[in-house]
């Protein structure tokens, strides 16, 4: 303590100088906008950089939620798109205050598991009966068709993907409009086969294959893939067409579950035909 006091008194001149200079600088920074902004800018430069670095890192942790939000939003937007509505035609309409009735509703979901190497491949999705998912609904991703919901639990559902030997998707060639059936004949998970295209149809490599919307599982016009090669076996009326799927089943993430409002109505109507 004695030494400290001696040290202080010995150097009182320097301390007084530092003290007065400190006061001057406090006054300077507090009362002069220019110096003020400079000081805080330079401290902002350091701290701001630090913050932005931390933010950059933090953003990665948030990406998951942000993506989920965006997917949710996309689903909502897609539900309001005109393509998901069907126009009500006809002269006599019972009760009709809009010209469009909603046909499809999209729910965003996330693929949590996916297989591609089995004969019957399924994809597990993190939405279930609690979210209103029912068996038979279609599942699409922004890139294209994925499959149909097979089994539903409370929080999950399993989707029979296109890569399932018993799954057949009603598909058509976008350019000519001819309708066929898309199946997967095992093997390469990138390739599916389009059947029932008659031999008089003109085909080109690169033709786009899209959904028909006939089965009411998927909306019409969802991308399935592109023709990569085709051949016409001797004495056969139908092409063998290889279709490269637009969806990469090995890198699935956000998907949309499609609920069709009119599916039951259509099915009931079609069931009448069989009953008669």
């Amino acid at each position: 303590m004695k030494n400290l006091i001696r040290f202080l008194t010995k150097n009182s001149f320097v301390f007084l100088f530092v003290f007065l200079l400190f006061i001057s600088f406090v006054l300077l920074v507090q009362n002069n906008n220019y110096q003020n902004s400079r000081v805080f800018n330079s401290s902002n430069f350091l701290i701001g950089n630090l913050y932005s670095t931390i933010n950059n890192v933090n953003d990665y942790f948030d990406l998951k939620e942000v993506n989920a939000d965006l997917a949710e939003q996309n689903a909502r937007l897609q539900s309001t798109q005109i393509g998901t509505f069907s126009k009500i035609n006809g002269i006599v309409v019972e009760i009709n205050d809009t010209i469009y009735a909603q046909k499809y509703v999209y729910t965003s979901a996330k693929a949590v598991n996916s297989t591609t190497n089995k004969r019957e491949n399924y994809i597990t999705i993190d939405k279930g009966s609690l979210n209103g998912i029912e068996a038979g609904m279609g599942v699409v991703s922004p890139k294209g068709v994925i499959g149909t919901v097979k089994n539903v639990s409370e929080n999950f559902c399993s989707v029979m993907s296109v890569l399932h030997e018993k799954n057949a998707v009603s598909a058509k060639i976008k350019k000519s409009g001819y309708i066929g059936s898309l199946v997967w004949e095992l093997g390469d998970y990138r390739l599916a086969q389009l059947k029932d295209i008659p031999n008089h149809v003109k085909l080109n490599v690169g033709d786009e294959i899209i959904t028909t919307g006939y089965s009411m599982v998927y909306p019409e016009g969802i991308m399935i893939g592109k023709v990569v090669d085709f051949d016409l076996p001797e004495g056969n009326n139908f092409y063998n067409i290889n279709v490269e799927l637009s969806v990469d089943y090995k890198s699935l993430s956000h998907v949309f579950i499609v609920k069709s409002w009119m599916k039951n109505e259509q099915k009931e109507l079609e069931a009448l035909n069989n009953a008669n």
Binding site: F13, L16, F17, L20, L21, I23, S24, F25, V26, L27, L28, V29, Q30, N31, N32, Q35
Partner: peptide, 30 residues
């Protein structure tokens, strides 16, 4: 030092740059 400080404050009062001349005069006194 103190006189330098006071002088600086007085000058700064005219130019309304409080602290600028003060720090300089304190520095010179030092």
């Amino acid at each position: 030092l103190v006189l330098g400080f006071v002088l600086g404050i007085a000058i700064d009062a005219f130019t309304s740059t409080l602290g600028m001349h003060t720090s300089a005069t304190v520095f010179v006194a030092f």
